[in-house]
Amino acid sequence: MTRGTFAYVGQRFVLIALTALVVSSIVFIGVHQLPGNAFLSERQSSPQREAELLHHYGLDKPLPQQYLAWVGGVLHGDLGESLVNRGVRITPLLLRELRVSATLGLFALLFTVVLGMGLGILAATKQNTWIDYAASFGGTVGYSMPNFVTATLLILLTVTGFYAWSGGAFYEDIGWGKPEQVIVPAIALGLYPMAIISRLTRASMLEVIRQDYVRTAWAKGLRPRLVVIRHSLRNALIPVVTILGPITTSVITGSVVIEYIFGIPGLGKEFVNSIFNRDYNIVIGVFTFYAILVGLANLAVDLVYPLLDPRIRY
């Protein structure tokens, strides 16, 4: 950690804040253009009652004024109140849901990185054997399936399939709360990025093991294990790490679909519901959360990068 690093991190934080501001204002404008509002589905809703509610939430004020009020709240760490569930403060709600989503996301990333790199390395060291072909085939399948298809197939397999095969002894209970319930959605979420990582790792490994410095390592008489791990793997991982930023982004956006399908009470599900409910404050809040998360994930990756490659300095 040098001074340069601190300055760099500082700059990046400013950028993330700016991005969050831009994203939130775009979403703010966009969400108010959606037809209808949060109170249309109210029972016994009368025009008068609706006007009262709109006034209560300040929704009858001009948009710029509303936005400024919202930004003011955000600066105090307050994202406002839910329009549908009255009295529910959004900040603690989203933080709670973030924990759920982060758990799912981390498991998905773990699956992605461990299995993706593992398969990539295996395929590269066993190049042009059936192992390589099988891994490449699996990769192509994973790569070409959208996550909602993967999710539906996995549910079919684990819920209906396992139940039928085990004669009812095994019952996969989708939902959230039990530790084992994270596995299937994490796989559904991680399969696509896993395929990308395994392909990239394979290509990168194959390139590195032809490098002159790997030949030097052999010529020194190093043990094969050291040649592979110390002289090939670490170098091969550098390009893989660069795409971990975009991969994390894809896991975050993918979680919107996966949480909805698996009924997981995380940010993603909240996001979808809040749009349907026209719960403006939550929509904007979730969007802003996502913008910040993507920014932080990419920053984290960029900070790992120089640890792997000493030629990079900030």
Binding site: Q211, A217, R234, N235, I238, R311
Partner: peptide
């Protein structure tokens, strides 16, 4: 022991 033509690429850049 052996040394090679291109010293630029013969050493591992990350060690």
């Amino acid at each position: 022991a052996m040394i090679f033509q291109d010293p630029m690429t013969s050493m591992n850049p990350v060690l």
